[in-house]
């Protein structure tokens, strides 16, 4: 007997729907599982005191500082490079061999695994340039890692700005650079910020590239040349060495909340931005 196409259609649709629902459930499960076990650990003391006995007791204050400082250094370095690249690709160069090469380089860099960044940052910054395990080494390594994200998002944002804006500015006697800085970049700003925020998100969750460049000191850093431990690294050490499951859950919960927040903000920004220009 031949199965009717309409019947197959129904079955296929159900299977596809169930698969999608399953995927979304995995995400929700991870989030709820971590939050359920971790939220009860979080209180002001947990946030504002230093760890005791390697993290068995006490809070995670130094790790929060580390998690703020490393991405901060990273975006301070990566944003000008990334936006500059995006401007060059969109405003100065016609599509051609050069833009293809640069774009290919960006794609490749985006695909480089974080452990390779860790190795590289370790030889270049920690050893060769003598920065040691430090916030600076970690921040620089992260900057290289998030550069492709910032380039791609900025490029997309700059491309979304109507061509007529540029024409108007040029026809009013603006130079190319004036047109870029006074019309194109201000209009593209929300999109560019989205890329920066996504870069922060990646940095916050990163472990492999950070642990070999910023180290894992539990002291509150006093300078850029001090080692520090981010929340992700702290969580990894707590969980893998079985130091304290309770504090591991607490740290993970803060990490998850931060990631959720960062992603929601960037999504909201990009959504609003794209709605305005398309």
């Amino acid at each position: 007997m031949k199965i009717k196409p309409a019947f197959t259609e129904q079955i296929v649709k159900k299977i596809l729907f169930i698969s999608t629902a399953f995927t979304v459930l995995i995400l929700l499960f991870i989030i709820f599982y971590i939050l359920k076990n971790g939220l009860s650990v979080i209180d002001l003391e947990f946030l504002l005191t230093s760890p005791k006995e390697l993290g068995r007791a006490g809070g995670i204050f130094p790790c929060i500082i580390g998690t703020i400082l490393l991405p901060l250094i990273a975006i301070i370095i990566a944003t000008p490079l990334g936006v500059g690249t995006a401007i060059y690709l969109t405003e100065y160069k016609r599509e051609g061999r050069l833009t293809r090469i640069i774009r290919f380089g960006t794609e490749c860099l985006a695909g480089v695994p974080s452990i390779i960044f860790g190795l590289f940052g370790f030889v270049l910054f920690v050893i060769y340039l003598g920065f040691g395990w430090s916030i600076l080494s970690g921040g620089l390594t992260l900057a290289f890692m998030i550069l492709p994200t910032i380039i791609r998002t900025s490029e997309e944002a700059i491309r979304a700005i109507p061509y007529s804006y540029r024409e108007v500015s040029l026809s009013l006697g603006g130079t190319k650079w004036q047109t870029i800085t006074r019309v194109v970049l201000p209009s593209a700003l929300p999109g560019i910020v989205t890329g920066v925020i996504l870069g922060i998100g990646r940095s916050v969750g990163e472990t492999a590239a950070v642990i070999f460049t910023a180290g894992s000191s539990l002291r509150v850093p006093a300078s850029l040349f001090d080692s520090c431990r981010t929340m992700a690294v702290h969580f990894y050490i707590l969980a893998r060495e079985g130091i304290s499951m309770e504090n591991a859950y607490g740290t993970a919960a803060i990490l998850i909340i931060a990631i959720l927040f960062i992603n929601l903000v960037s999504y909201w920004l990009m959504h609003r931005f794209m709605a305005k220009f398309s």
Partner: peptide, 30 residues
């Protein structure tokens, strides 16, 4: 210099996403 001497008004009005004042003052500020 040329484009200040020879001004252009396009078919479709394209106000820059700024205030009315800023739009008019855009050229002189440049």
């Amino acid at each position: 210099w040329l484009r200040r001497k020879v001004g252009m008004v396009f078919a479709l009005p394209v106000p820059l996403p700024r205030t009315i004042f800023e739009n008019i003052a855009y050229g002189p500020k440049l």
